[in-house]
């Protein structure tokens, strides 16, 4: 059920008012908790406002891809759980769910968070890292919550041992990560640019831009929906992403104890 009128949003946006007195470039409250699922090799739950995303990591023995025989594999999947929103349905992954998984995956992959050559065991045997994103409650901006949760889960993940032809999941070592990446998602609502759109803002946004970056470099970008951005706008959002990501990186570091 649509709960806002365009008139209402126009008035708010033109005055620069958002829910909870947020400014255009303010995030909602963020909570990042690690290690909630001890059975998983790594896990973390990111809460942004009422949005809740849980990331779980499992690491299994597998064969390498034929084109990268000396590298481990990374697989990211996402479930937009039907319990998370009345707009999410039971069934095979929707285009939205697939886009979500792929955008988060690209940021982690190209941000060199993991060195896949270190996942090589012996000829024909590598580690596969399965990264699953569970959207438990939807209130906008699952992208940034997904990246935060996955980043923290990886940074605190363990890796099994391979001994005598068997996978051993006891006394596991820390999985090595070599970078911290975070994403910032912006929504274009009417003509305003807002970071971290909530569910109501996403209902009305015309275009969305997700920028995943580290301290100095951008690793992934994704423009979503039917609307457009001008290059000038994108430039300003890149600046904003580098600025906001300082906060987000701090949150990751704090949660992982580094």
């Amino acid at each position: 059920m649509r709960t806002l009128t365009k008139e209402y949003m126009m008035e708010r946006i033109s005055k620069g008012i958002r829910n909870e007195k947020r400014k255009p470039m303010d995030y909602r409250n963020i909570k990042l908790e690690v290690g909630l699922i001890p059975n998983a090799e790594g896990s973390a739950q990111a809460t942004i406002g009422n949005t809740k995303v849980l990331a779980g990591i499992k690491i299994d023995l597998s064969e390498p891809m034929t084109d990268t025989p000396e590298d481990g594999n990374l697989t990211t999947s996402a479930e937009l759980l039907p319990m998370a929103s009345e707009n999410y349905d039971i069934g095979p992954p929707t285009p939205e769910g697939v886009e979500f998984a792929r955008v988060v995956d690209r940021g982690i992959r190209h941000g060199n968070v993991l060195d896949t050559s270190k996942l090589f065991i012996e000829e024909g045997k590598v580690w596969s890292i399965f990264m699953d994103l569970y959207v438990l409650n939807y209130d906008g901006n699952i992208f940034d919550a997904g990246t935060l949760a996955l980043m923290a889960a990886l940074a605190t993940s363990k890796i099994p041992k391979y001994e005598d032809g068997k996978v051993v999941r006891e006394n596991m070592k820390r999985l090595e990560t070599s970078n911290i990446v975070t994403s910032c998602t912006f929504a274009k609502v009417i003509d305003s640019l807002l970071v971290d759109p909530d569910g109501a803002e996403e209902e009305l946004m015309k275009a969305r831009l997700t920028i995943t970056n580290g301290k100095e470099l951008i690793y992934a970008m994704q423009k979503g929906l039917g609307g457009v951005f001008m290059q000038k706008e994108i430039d300003s959002l890149i600046d904003a992403a580098f600025d906001k990501s300082k906060e987000l990186r701090n949150i990751v570091q704090k949660s992982t104890g580094d």
């Binding site: 709960t3 009128t5 209402y8």
Partner: peptide
């Protein structure tokens, strides 16, 4: 009801 918003 013109304008405004709804709460559930």
């Amino acid at each position: 009801l013109n304008g405004g918003k709804l709460l559930k």
